[in-house]
Design a protein around this nucleic acid. Structure first.
Lengths: 200, 200, 200, 200
DNA sequence: CATGAATGAGTCTTCATTCAT
DNA sequence: TATGAATGAAGACTCATTCAT
């Protein structure tokens, strides 16, 4: 009697993923989700107590993954007596492979939390991730003298966003794992090289 | 029907711009728009015959501007016996300054048509613009030999998107014209330089 | 169906009493009752076949008690060659002590059937009890001459209701048995004395 | 074009009064109200923006009337160098005639705010009115010595409630103004006389 | 031109109840 | 017995739009 329940639960989750993804959280309707899942609208509420909870049931895991990732990056920095070489190592090895793992594990969920979360508590998440990345870049790439010159460089913000959006676009167009990995690597390399040249 | 009061029409347009921008086309409500414009909801229909038409009244100009721009770029190419130097000129002079003029003239409209048009006929526009740009890059930057090697390079697609998204992010954070111009230039330079290095 | 676990049955009844009392019959929900009882909603239906039956399972006893009381009062009258002294005795001894016993035995049930039964077959009960009491008063207190004068005295109706409401308010604010008894006695004395003075 | 609107507005208010009165605020449904008013459910929202507002549109006037009454009573006390005779005057002249005026002006509204307001901000109002009356009685009727003896007399609370409930029962059974006036007077006289005798 | 009136479909959610296991 | 699954009706309320005045 447990496998049946999970069956439907899974159907609801799948239907939700698709619906939230195409319509966004706000425009997605419980009706449509229920119809896609092949059940009565009110029955959805036997599984998830609200539209919002349903959304979080899908997106919470990737959120926690992101939070852990952030922590790991900070620990990485703290442990490594952070110099330029280590930074390079971080952004050519650790970060891209971490991104890859995340995309591999949470494809749709990542897109949901980043692109379709308007109206939920995760709405500001993308901006926060971008800001974190931007700070990291600024601290590690821009040389001391340039820091004063390029104070408040908006370009760095754009590039951080570009990197995130690039990863998301790769995710949206997922072909296979190898394809993802290679594209993340290229993108990363492209931007790291570009930033180093531009800001130093 | 055509003797409408221009100030009210303008108020509706202004209210719509704000509402569509913050809520998106789908979630924006005629009520809220009317309230913001300080008029009765049903009176909106004396000026625009539907929510969708109202959206197009705002976004059509920037759409046509974009279409013209596209044509100009193609003509530019056709006229100039297009070689590498000309390409460089195009992307360091013509394109950035065209972008700047567009942002200057259609700030909110540009964001609306690109970011808030889900549910309208302009929904696929951003993708199309990106594709156009991508094609242009691919044709002009990747050297013949590489073209075969890097066949189906998704990175080029990402970079085209990055450029567009960068312009939009500049537009979203508009400070003043000079700020826009300088940031567009930097961004353009960054990517052109990056692409040339990466793909040749 | 009849081999039910008494403790669960009891838990449902207890949960219902509280829920019906605070929400009223109509607004009380089977969900809340089940949750308070610590069981599954649908399991409630293994013990009581509907919300209404559940309500009656709680309130039937006090209803029958009330019915018996009514009969006893009539028999009391019939047996006693009812004169004024006997009436006094009835309303200073028999009735208050009967009320006290009832409150003692059916505290919450009494409140339920009187205050929270809207939407059930017991909805008109309070009115009926008041009417009975009113008739009793009218027959025994108002002197023959006054009866014609005060024909259709609404005051008597109010006082009968006052008495019932008084008992219920005592029940609502239950402190301890002694407190109840003493307050019922005071209230009764107050009204009997008042009525005698007013109507004779 | 204004008289039509008021027509329907009035119909909604009338339908609401009846529905709230018979079902209580919580159980009354906008559907039923709309049906009774002969209009589409959603149209009700063109006149009142929520069920709660609709309830307040009906009950606010009587609330303000009650609040003023309360103030007047206090001022009456303050002005009159309050002694026993004045108290008697207050409760045999001022109060009953004020009650009468209120009942005359706000018959259904009074019942609504007192009996059908569960779930609204007026839910605690009846209790407050009773408490005010109780305090007034206690301060003016109970003699100093008795005050210590009868400390925390619950009977006084019941009698205050009885008086209020009596007024409400008169209101519920409204025949005509004269009938109301005479019954209020009788009830008041009955209780004042009873209390004086009982508590002094 | 402007407004209020009106509507029917849709929003999310809760309800009492039944059924299969 | 106990539970989760299921449902259709109903809850309050919002939506874009039309119509008469």
């Amino acid at each position: 009697m447990q496998f049946q329940k999970d069956d439907i639960r899974e159907k609801i989750l799948a239907a939700s993923r698709e619906t939230f993804l195409t319509q966004g959280y706000g425009k997605a309707s419980m009706r449509e989700i229920a119809k896609k899942a092949g059940i009565n609208t009110s029955n959805v509420y036997n599984y998830f107590k609200s539209k919002e909870e349903l959304f979080y049931a899908i997106t919470d895991p990737v959120f926690h993954h992101l939070a852990n990732l952030r922590k790991e990056v900070f620990e990485y920095k703290a442990n490594k007596d952070f110099k330029n070489e280590n930074f390079m190592q971080q952004f050519t090895e650790f970060v891209p492979s971490a991104m890859f793992e995340m995309v591999k594990k949470y494809r749709k969920e990542l897109l949901l939390i980043m692109d379709s979360s308007k109206g939920t508590k995760y709405e500001p998440l993308k901006k926060m991730v971008v800001t974190t990345m931007e700070t990291n870049f600024t601290e590690n790439i821009i040389s001391q003298e340039n820091k004063e010159l390029l104070q408040d460089s908006f370009l760095m913000h754009i590039l951080a966003m570009n990197l995130i959006e690039g990863i998301l676009e790769i995710t949206r167009n997922y072909k296979n794992d190898k394809w993802v990995k290679s594209n993340i690597d290229s993108l990363m390399k492209y931007h790291i090289r570009g930033m180093v040249q531009f800001f130093t």
